[in-house]
Simulated assay, not measured.
Amino acid sequence: MRALICEQPEGFESLRLGDMPIPAPGPGEVLVEVKAAGLNFADSLMCAGKYQVKPPVPFVPGLELAGMVTALGQGVDTLKPGQRVMAVVDHGAFAASALCKAADVFPIPEGLGFQQAAGFPIAYGTSYGALVWKARLQPGETLLVHGAAGGVGLTAVEIGKALGARVIATAGGPDKCAIALAHGAEAAIDYKAEDIRERVKALTGGKGADVVYDPVGGDVFDASLRAVNWNARIVIIGFAGGRVPAIPANILLVKNVDALGFYWGSYRQHRPDLLAAGFAALSGMAAAGQLRPHISEILPLAAWHQGFETLLSRRATGKIVFEP
Rank of each mutant, 00 (worst) to 15 (best):
G164P: 09
Q138R: 15
G147I: 02
A171E: 07
E141G: 11
H183A: 05
G160D: 01
F120R: 03
T170L: 07
P107N: 04
P139G: 11
A123N: 15
G153R: 04
G119M: 09
D175L: 10
L112D: 10
H91G: 00
Q116D: 11
A135D: 13
L137W: 05
H91F: 14
H146F: 08
A162K: 01
K101T: 02
V89T: 13
A117P: 09
F106M: 14
A171L: 06
D90K: 10
V105Q: 07
E141P: 10
H146D: 11
L144T: 09
A156T: 04
L143H: 10
K161M: 03
A103L: 13
G160A: 04
A117E: 07
G151N: 07
T170C: 08
A96V: 01
V88I: 15
G173S: 09
L137T: 02
D104R: 15
E110I: 00
G92S: 01
T155L: 00
A103R: 15
G172Q: 05
I179V: 15
L131W: 10
H91Y: 15
A118C: 12
T126C: 05
P139A: 13
K101Y: 10
H146P: 08
D175V: 13
R84F: 06
L154K: 08
A117F: 07
P139N: 12
A123G: 06
G153F: 03
V132L: 03
L181K: 14
A180L: 07
I168C: 09
L144F: 11
R166P: 01
H183I: 04
C100T: 06
G129S: 12
I122K: 02
L143W: 06
E141T: 12
A171T: 04
A87D: 03
G153W: 02
V145F: 04
L163I: 01
A148R: 09
G172I: 04
K101S: 14
E186H: 14
A117L: 11
K161D: 02
G153V: 08
P174H: 02
F114E: 13
E110S: 15
E186S: 15
F120Q: 02
V88E: 09
G113K: 08
F114I: 02
F106S: 11
C100K: 00
V145S: 07
F120A: 02
D175Q: 15
Q138Y: 00
G150W: 07
V157F: 06
I159L: 01
H183E: 03
Y124I: 02
C177T: 12
A117Y: 06
